[in-house]
Write a protein that binds this DNA or RNA. Structure first.
Lengths: 156, 156
DNA sequence: GAAGGATATTTGCATTTGCATTTAATTCTG
DNA sequence: CAGAATTAAATGCAAATGCAAATATCCTTC
């Protein structure tokens, strides 16, 4: 099936505000900017903040897995981990069965730092959904999960 | 109303894959990466590609408006416009009533370039929604529009 | 109508980013 | 089991980014 020969409605016909990727970029652009401004005060960049968030939920992932979860380039992540390690918020640990691989863990200090961050993230997320009924929110998340399954490259 | 004292469910309780901002970042990370890889072949960066896309729909916006639409920092956009102008894809034009302001227009060459890009963008967008019924897609976009209204800082 | 403040864009500069490469270790194949 | 191919992570380096400052213009107010 050659997708090249498919015909698509023009963007002008759909309209920018009916084109889902446009809306999602606009929304996440603002959401991420809000979080970033708040985190900058505490000396955290987006990759560092996301690392803490994911590690609060996922125990000891490999660095390459963490790169997928955080949606951060592996080389960028590697450097973010250097900083977090220096600050004592995470620790790297060699994988038991594969000595190329490195697993990453939150330290107690890292977990404590994330606890102070999370309310800001949760508040921003709640603001996104203000005035949107629970049922609609659940349907929205369900659609997002299907979309991720459609597009993801990695099995995690 | 102090939001600082609100209590939020922990991220661990919600689960990463039920947290909408996480899902949206994962999805748009992959979507944007796919587009970026394809555009790199043609010498277009994300800011340049988005500029062409928005200009195909919005006639002669101010640069600061274009920055909002494209979700690109204004200084970054300014430099992207330099390149697009050099390549003959857009032109800047002084605003009639405010000589500080600059309006941006697609040239014929720019429009032609976008026409070749759009099928890729549309195909990637369609892939996101593969297997998702039309009705669900419409509901999803409607929710996105509400979310944008909730979070946007600018009146455009 | 002049001065002070606001706004639109560009530019200087230091930081961040990402691609490509390197290093190190593992797995596959004949 | 040797050697080739693959994989994980770190690093060198050029390019992209974003903040802050500069420049130019406009608006307000007295």
């Amino acid at each position: 099936m050659s997708e090249d020969t498919e015909t698509h409605a023009r963007l002008g016909e759909i309209g920018l505000t009916n084109f889902a990727p446009y809306l999602m970029n606009r929304i996440m652009g603002r959401y991420n900017a809000m979080i970033r401004e708040e985190m900058a005060d505490v000396g955290l960049t987006t990759p560092k903040m996301r690392t803490l968030a994911v590690l609060s939920v996922v125990e000891g992932p490999l660095i390459r897995e963490l790169a997928v979860y955080t949606v951060v380039e592996q080389s960028t992540l590697s450097r973010a981990l250097d900083q977090l390690q220096t600050e004592g918020l995470i620790r790297r640990e060699a994988d038991a069965s594969d000595s190329r691989a490195v697993r990453v863990f939150l330290t107690d200090a890292g977990r404590a730092t994330f606890e102070t961050l999370w309310p800001h993230m949760a508040t921003s997320a709640a603001r996104l959904f203000k005035g949107i009924p629970d049922e609609e929110q659940r349907a929205f998340v369900a659609t997002l999960q299907k979309m991720l399954a459609n597009i993801r490259k990695h099995e995690i």
